[in-house]
């Protein structure tokens, strides 16, 4: 059923979630108290990752609302993520928790239109809360063949990084070509602008050519999700050289073994559950660097080698 005022539906869902007995702390509450320079970033991220392991381990397929009548629905699938994803992202190997099914996650899933194909709902993970209150969600999907005609060899196993903003109830997100391709340079783009409630149906989408040109313009044309990653060599170059023009936060998903991310030459942020969020440093031309637990650089190429 399509509503005439989806923003009101979203607000009511958010209010209902916040007032449901036993519900997880609301993203909105964390937004009000968490600011840059406030709580340590690690504490903010870690707090958002509190899980009750095993809560859904023995249950059947999770059937949240996927998409909406106005733009169609993706399907839910019980198939697990392929080994290429789960073997390098520990967050996919842990069990789904209550937090992984909270209102922010469901808001992101309501953007999952038919173009995404099938969503691995039991593998959806709430990655963490950004210090400004926005919530990052990882959505594994199996997209249809020919999803992007410009990338004929693209794997059908995709990961969507979704963002939910409790301030506007807007959501956005985009796919990467696979888990290991999710580099900081890509993921920064997804949250460089704050989606509004009006944009919730479209989400945030950036065309690859816009990224190359250094312009981050929202695409109003369907399909609503554009794959930013292209051939690997270009991806590497972009991950180390391209910066959004005016980002307000960097977020990213990194493989197991990356303990910290250096974002502007000297600011280092921790990685929790394969996820990091870092404050923006405008104008920086330093590349994003992945670091292991000993502070050594983790080269992108060697990490990604498994899926060449």
């Amino acid at each position: 059923m399509t509503t005439l005022i989806p923003a009101l539906e979203a607000q009511l869902l958010f209010a209902a979630d916040r007032t449901t007995p036993g519900a997880a702390p609301s993203p909105g509450a964390s937004r009000r108290r968490a600011r840059w320079g406030g709580l340590p970033l690690l504490a903010v991220v870690a707090a958002s990752l509190t899980v009750s392991a095993g809560a859904y381990a023995s249950r059947g397929l999770w059937l949240p609302q996927l998409g909406a009548d106005s733009y169609g629905h993706a399907q839910a699938t019980a198939s697990p993520p392929p080994g290429a994803e789960s073997s390098v992202l520990g967050v996919l190997r842990r069990e789904q928790s209550d937090a992984d099914r909270d209102v922010a996650v469901r808001a992101v899933l309501r953007d999952a239109g038919p173009s995404l194909g099938k969503i691995r709902t039991n593998a959806v993970r709430r990655l963490g809360t950004l210090p400004d209150g926005r919530v990052a969600v990882l959505v594994p999907a199996r997209v249809p063949k020919g999803f992007d005609p410009t990338l004929p060899n693209m794997t059908q196993d995709q990961l969507l990084l979704g963002i939910y903003d409790p301030a506007t109830h807007g959501t956005g997100g985009f796919l990467t070509s696979d888990a290991l391709g999710m580099q900081a340079g890509d993921l920064m783009l997804a949250v460089s602008r704050r989606p509004s409630a009006e944009q919730s149906a479209l989400g945030h989408a950036f065309l690859e050519r816009e990224v190359r040109a250094g312009r981050l313009e929202k695409s109003a044309e369907p399909p609503y999700y554009h794959v930013l990653s292209v051939e690997q060599s270009e991806r590497y170059a972009r991950a180390t050289g391209l910066r959004p023009t005016d980002p307000d936060v960097y977020v990213g998903v990194v493989p197991d073994g990356v303990a910290e991310v250096r974002v502007d030459g000297h600011t280092t942020v921790p990685v929790v559950g394969n996820f990091f969020a870092a404050p923006s440093t405008r104008g920086s031309r330093h590349p994003v660097v992945w670091l292991d637990a000993h502070g050594r650089t983790v080269p992108f190429a060697s990490t990604i080698g498994a899926w060449k």
């Binding site: 509503t3 539906e9 869902l13 209902a16 036993g22 609302q65």
Partner: peptide, 21 residues
């Protein structure tokens, strides 16, 4: 269902939005 599932209230809204409007 609204006691335990926030989505239930959203479903109630979807069902009665137009009649109430």
């Amino acid at each position: 269902a609204t006691r335990t599932d926030p989505e239930a209230f959203a479903a109630l809204y979807r069902r009665y939005e137009r009649p109430v409007l």
